[in-house]
Design a protein around this nucleic acid. Structure first.
Length: 884
RNA sequence: GCUGGGGUGGCGGAAUUGGUAGACGCCCAGGACUUAAAAUCCUGUGCCCUUAGGGGCGUACGGGUUCGAUUCCCGUCCCCAGUACCA
C-alpha cells in the first residue's frame, strides 16, 4: 500500500464504489429511526461556488454522522431549474433555456459528485420537468378550489433592470432580491396565494421551532408578518357643509388607550375621504395633497429621512370617546398600504405624531402617565411633554378611564367601541398575499382557462401537466412569451368545451421550492405530489441547511405550503422543518485595477496587501506597484474573485477542501476565503494517512477490539484522549458545530504521534490503544473527509466494501476511560495563579486545601500573611485568600 | 433612529456557561534532514520588564458584584445584520 496520500486516486476510487453499490440509497425501514437531512437545492447557474461547497459539506457531514449513528438517512438533492437566468441567457446569447439549464445541471452534478457528497441520486427532482411542475399546477388548482388562489388587479413590484415582477418578499427593502436595483410599481392583473389566511398560524406555530431555528430567522419572520393587535375606531365627519353626514374616517390604532390625547386625524394623501370631500377642499389644500401624493411615489433612498409634511383639510372629525371635535389633516407620514390609511394623532404618546404636532403647532396633551406619577397627574392640568412617552402606563385626563392601566384600558375601550358601534378590536398584518404571476416563459404555466361563457375555470386534473411549448419568443421586455404562442393558449373550456384561452403567465419559481423536499420522498409518483403514507415516514425534515438570505422568502413560503398541505390532509404536522441551520456566506477579497478595468483575485503573486491592526486592508498594490481598489464580495466565478471548486479539488482534493471549509470558521459566520489555510487541511489528512500506514503492520489484523490491560502510562493516556475526543466530537455534532470537532480530530492525531513509540517496539497494550485511537479517528473523520476515511478504514479493518456495507458505527465514548486518574489543580493566591498541584479526581476538599497550602510556590506568596479564607472547587481549583 | 447579534494574539478562532484565557490551525522565526530546494519532523510564538528564577499587564473602554469575571449587572464607544415613518 502506498505510504503517500493520493487524493485524486482514492477519491475517484470511492466515488465509483459508492455509485456502483448505491451506498447512499434510502429505503423505508421501519426498524430504524429515520433522519431527513436536507440542504437548499441549487439553482443550475452553471457552476458551484464556494458557498455551495460550504453548505453541502456541512449537510454531508451530518448525513454521514447520522448514518454512522445507525439512522436511516434520507439525503437527497435536486435542481431549482426554473428561473430567470435561463431566459437572460436566451435573450443575450440566443440559446435555448431548456438546453442551457440541462447543460448546467450536468456540469454541476459532476461537481457535486467530485466533492464526494453522499446523495441518493435516484431521488433527484428537476423543477423544470413536466413530471414535477405538473404538481405545482395540481397544488394551484387545489388552492383555487379552496379559495386560497385568486386573481386581482394590483400594483405589483416591478424591477426595471430585470424587467420582472417581484413578490413583496422578493422586493423587501425596495430592492430587487436578484439584482439589487430599486423596485418601482406597475399595474397588473396577478394571481395571488392567500398567505395572509395563515398569518396567525405562521406566527403562533413559531413557538414550535423557536429554539431549533436561528433566532435571526425567527425574528425576521415575525417582523415580516408584522402582526399588531389594536382596534379600529370611527371618527365621524363633522363639517358644516356636510352636517348630518354619516361618513366616518376609520383609523387603526394599537393604542386606543391614548385616544383622549388625540389632537387630529391624519390621513394618507390617497385616502378616499379626499376624493369624497374634494368639493369642500380649498384649492390650496388640493394642491398640497397632490404634491404629497406625488412625493410618495418617488423612489426613496434607504437611509433618507423624510421631513414631516402635511396640511389641515378644514374637515373635522369627532372623537367618539370624548365628543371632542378635532381637525382632519393630510400627512406624508401616513401610508395608504397599512391599516386603514388613517391614524389618530396622539403626539404625547407617539414619536411621529409628536414630530408632526411640533412642526405644525398642534396641541400636545398627556393622557398616559408613569404609574408612580399618575396620582399627581390626575389633579394637575395636562402638561405639555418634552418628549413623547410611548410606554404603557396609567390613564389620566381620560374621564371614566382615569387610573386604569394601559393594558386594561385597551381591552375595555375596544369593547366599549364595539358596543356603541363605532369600532372594534382588530389585528392587522404587514404580511400581504403572495403574488405568483410572472410574465415569463421559463416557469410552470398557471393552469387556468378563460372562457367567454364560464369565466375563470381551472384546468382538469386529468389534463395536467399544462406543458410549456418547445419554445416561445423570449424578448425580456416584460410581456408573457406564452401570449405569443397560439398553440399554447388556444384551447377549449374544460366546462363547456367552447373555445377558450389559457392563462399565459407562469408561476414564481419560489412555488417550486416550497414543496420540493416532499417530492424527494416519493419522486416518481404520477397521481399525487407524493404519497401521504410515504411522506409520513420521512418527513418532517429533521435538519435543513442553507443561507439566511431566504429567511423571509423561501422559508416563509415553505412554511405556508406546509400548512396548506396539512389542511389538504397530505401531511399531519404544522411545521415541515424541525431544525434549521443558516450558514454564513463565503466571501473573497476582490481587487480592482481601475486603470485596466480588471478584477483580480487576491493571489499573493499578483497583489501586495497592507493591513491594519484589525486585519482590514489599508492598501493594496499590484505587481507593478499600482494602487488597487478593494472590496469584500460574495465569492463567485462570475465575479472572478474566487477559486472554482473544481480547481480546488484538482489541486488539493475534495476531502482537504471540505475539511478546511468546515474547520476555518463556525458555520454561521461569514468566511473570508484564504488560500493558505487549505494547505493545513491537506497536511492534516496526510498526517493521518502516514500515521495509519506507520502502524498498519501492527494494527491491521481486522480483529475486533477486545479488552486488554493497558501496559503503560502512554497507552492509558492515549485511551483517555481517544474517549475524551469521542465525547467531545459527538457533542459537537449534536449541537451543529463543525469547526471544533475538526480541531478535536487534530488533537487526537497529535496524541497518537506523541506517544513516540515505534510500532515494532510497542507492547500489546500500546498496540491496542493505538488501534483504538486510529480506528476512532478514521471513523470520526468520515463526515469531513469520507474518501480518505473509507480508504483508511479499509486498511484498519481489512474490508474493502466500505463502511456502510460493513455496518461501521460511530465510536462510543466510555466515561470510565475518559476520566483522568490524576488531574492538575490550579492554585490561586488572591485570585492569581501561583502553582498547580496534582491530585486524583474526587480528592476531598480538605486534602486539596492541605496540599495547596503546603505547596512551596504557594508558601512564597502566603509567607508572613494571614490566610483569611480558602475556596476549594472540587476537581477544579483552589483559591487562597490572604491579608497583610 | 429602532430591533437583534457581536467586539478575545499578526490572522481564523477555542474556553466544560462564574474557576488555569488564547485549544486547534494559519502566518512567522529558529533548528534537524538535504549538495540544494520541496516535503517532513522538532522547538518557539499574547504584550511588557528581567542575565536567570521570576514578575507585571492582558478578552473594546469605564465602573460594579464576587474568594475569583471573556462569562453576571450598570454606563460609554465601535462593528455587523435586519428594518424604515407599520399608527
Amino acid at each position: 500500500m502506498d505510504d503517500k496520500y493520493f487524493a485524486k486516486k482514492i477519491e475517484a476510487k470511492w466515488q465509483k464504489k459508492w455509485g456502483e453499490t448505491e451506498a447512499f440509497r434510502a429505503e423505508i425501514d421501519e426498524e430504524r429511526p429515520k433522519f431527513y437531512q436536507l440542504e437548499m437545492l441549487p439553482y443550475p447557474s452553471g457552476n458551484l461556488h464556494m458557498g455551495h461547497v460550504r453548505n453541502y459539506s456541512a449537510g454531508d457531514a451530518l448525513a454521514w454522522y447520522k448514518r454512522l449513528k445507525g439512522f436511516n438517512v434520507l439525503h437527497p438533492i435536486g435542481w431549482d431549474s426554473f428561473g430567470q437566468p435561463a431566459e437572460d441567457a436566451a435573450v443575450k446569447r440566443g440559446v435555448d433555456p431548456r438546453q442551457w439549464t440541462e447543460d448546467n445541471i450536468n456540469i454541476m452534478r459532476g461537481q457535486l459528485e467530485r466533492l464526494g457528497l453522499s446523495y441518493d441520486w435516484s431521488r433527484q427532482m428537476y423543477a423544470h420537468k413536466p413530471e414535477y411542475y405538473k404538481f405545482d399546477q395540481w397544488f394551484f388548482i387545489k388552492m383555487f378550489e379552496m379559495g386560497l388562489a385568486y386573481k386581482r388587479m394590483t400594483q405589483v413590484n416591478w424591477c426595471e433592470h430585470d424587467q420582472a415582477t417581484l413578490s413583496n418578499e422578493q422586493a423587501s427593502g425596495g430592492i430587487c432580491w436578484r439584482c439589487g436595483n430599486p423596485v418601482t410599481k406597475k399595474d397588473l392583473e396577478q394571481w395571488f396565494l392567500k398567505t395572509t389566511a395563515y398569518a396567525d398560524q405562521l406566527i403562533d406555530d413559531m413557538d414550535e421551532i423557536e429554539h431549533s431555528w436561528p433566532g435571526n430567522v425567527i425574528k425576521r419572520q415575525r417582523d415580516w408578518i408584522g402582526r399588531s393587535d389594536g382596534a379600529y375606531v370611527d371618527f365621524k365627519i363633522a363639517h358644516q357643509a356636510t352636517a348630518g353626514s354619516s361618513d366616518a374616517i376609520r383609523v387603526f390604532t394599537t393604542r386606543i388607550d391614548t385616544i383622549y390625547g388625540a389632537n387630529a386625524i391624519v390621513v394618507a394623501a390617497a385616502h378616499s375621504i379626499i376624493d369624497a370631500y374634494r368639493d369642500h377642499l380649498s384649492p390650496e389644500v388640493q394642491a398640497k395633497v397632490a404634491e404629497i401624493a406625488a412625493e410618495n411615489l418617488k423612489p426613496r433612498d434607504r437611509d433618507e429621512e423624510i421631513e414631516k409634511d402635511g396640511i389641515a383639510t378644514g374637515l373635522k372629525g369627532i372623537n367618539p370617546f370624548s365628543g371632542e371635535e378635532i381637525p382632519v389633516w393630510v400627512g406624508n407620514y401616513v401610508m395608504m398600504e397599512y391599516g386603514t390609511g388613517a391614524v389618530m394623532s396622539v403626539p404625547a404618546h407617539d414619536e411621529r405624531d409628536f414630530e408632526f404636532a411640533e412642526k405644525f403647532g398642534l396641541p400636545i396633551r398627556q393622557v398616559i402617565s408613569e404609574p408612580h406619577l399618575a396620582h399627581e397627574h390626575h389633579t394637575m392640568q395636562a402638561l405639555a411633554l418634552e418628549d413623547p412617552f410611548t410606554e404603557y402606563g396609567v390613564l389620566v385626563h381620560s374621564d371614566y378611564w382615569n387610573g386604569k392601566t394601559s393594558e386594561v384600558a385597551k381591552a375595555e375601550m375596544a369593547n366599549h367601541a364595539r358596543e356603541h358601534g363605532f369600532g372594534e378590536a382588530a389585528t392587522t398584518y404587514r404580511l400581504r398575499d403572495w403574488g405568483i404571476s410572472r410574465q415569463r416563459f421559463w416557469g410552470s404555466p398557471i393552469p387556468i382557462i378563460y372562457c367567454p361563457d364560464c369565466g375563470v375555470v381551472a384546468e382538469k386534473f386529468e389534463n395536467l401537466p399544462v406543458c410549456l411549448p418547445e419554445s416561445a419568443p423570449i424578448t425580456g421586455t416584460g410581456e408573457s412569451p406564452l401570449s405569443k404562442v397560439p398553440e399554447f393558449y388556444e384551447t377549449t373550456c374544460p366546462k363547456c368545451e367552447g373555445t377558450a384561452h389559457r392563462e399565459t403567465d407562469t408561476m414564481d419559481t419560489f412555488v417550486d421550492s416550497s414543496w420540493y423536499f416532499f417530492r424527494y420522498t416519493d419522486p416518481t409518483n404520477e397521481i399525487l405530489p407524493f404519497s401521504p403514507e410515504v411522506a409520513a415516514y420521512w418527513t418532517p425534515v429533521d435538519q435543513y441547511i442553507g443561507g439566511d438570505d431566504h429567511a423571509v422568502m423561501h422559508l416563509i413560503y415553505a412554511r405556508f405550503w406546509g400548512k396548506v398541505m396539512r389542511d389538504m390532509e397530505l401531511v399531519k404536522f404544522d411545521e415541515p422543518v424541525k431544525r434549521l441551520l443558516t450558514q454564513g456566506m463565503v466571501v473573497g477579497e476582490t481587487f480592482f485595477d481601475d486603470s485596466s478595468g480588471k478584477r483580480i483575485y487576491s493571489d499573493p503573486r499578483e497583489v501586495t496587501v497592507i493591513r491594519d491592526a484589525k486585519g482590514r486592508i489599508t492598501e493594496a498594490k499590484n505587481s507593478g506597484g499600482a494602487v488597487l481598489r478593494h472590496a469584500i464580495e460574495r465569492m463567485s466565478k462570475s465575479k472572478g474573485n474566487g477559486v472554482d471548486p473544481d480547481e480546488m479539488i484538482e489541486i488539493y482534493g475534495a476531502d482537504a477542501a471540505r475539511i478546511f471549509i468546515m474547520f476555518a470558521a463556525p458555520i454561521e459566520n461569514e468566511l473570508v476565503w484564504n488560500e493558505a489555510g487549505i494547505e493545513g487541511g491537506v497536511r492534516f489528512l496526510q498526517r493521518v494517512w502516514r500515521l495509519v500506514h506507520k502502524w498498519e503492520s501492527r494494527i491491521a489484523n481486522g480483529e475486533p477490539l477486545g479488552a486488554i490491560d493497558e501496559s503503560s502510562d502512554a497507552a492509558r493516556a492515549l485511551r483517555r484522549k481517544t474517549h475524551q475526543s469521542i465525547k467531545r466530537i459527538t457533542e459537537n455534532f449534536e449541537s451543529l458545530q463543525f469547526n471544533t470537532p475538526v480541531a478535536a480530530l487534530m488533537e487526537l492525531a497529535n496524541a497518537v504521534s506523541d506517544i513516540r513509540i515505534e510500532p515494532e517496539n510497542a507492547d500489546a497494550g500500546e498496540v491496542f490503544a493505538v488501534r483504538e485511537a486510529l480506528t476512532s479517528l478514521v471513523l470520526m473523520l468520515t463526515p469531513f473527509a469520507p474518501h480518505t476515511a473509507e480508504e483508511l478504514y479499509s486498511i484498519v479493518i481489512g474490508n474493502e466494501n466500505g463502511m456502510l456495507a460493513n455496518g461501521a458505527r460511530f465510536p462510543e465514548s466510555n466515561e470510565e476511560l475518559a476520566r483522568a486518574d490524576e488531574i492538575e489543580i490550579p492554585v490561586q493566591v488572591n485570585g492569581k495563579l501561583r502553582s498547580r498541584v496534582m491530585a486524583a479526581p474526587g480528592t476531598p476538599n480538605d486534602e486539596l486545601e492541605r496540599r495547596a497550602l503546603t505547596d512551596a510556590k504557594v508558601v512564597e506568596h502566603t509567607h508572613g500573611k494571614t490566610v483569611v479564607k480558602v475556596v476549594v472547587v472540587p476537581d477544579r481549583l483552589v483559591n487562597i485568600v490572604v491579608k497583610g
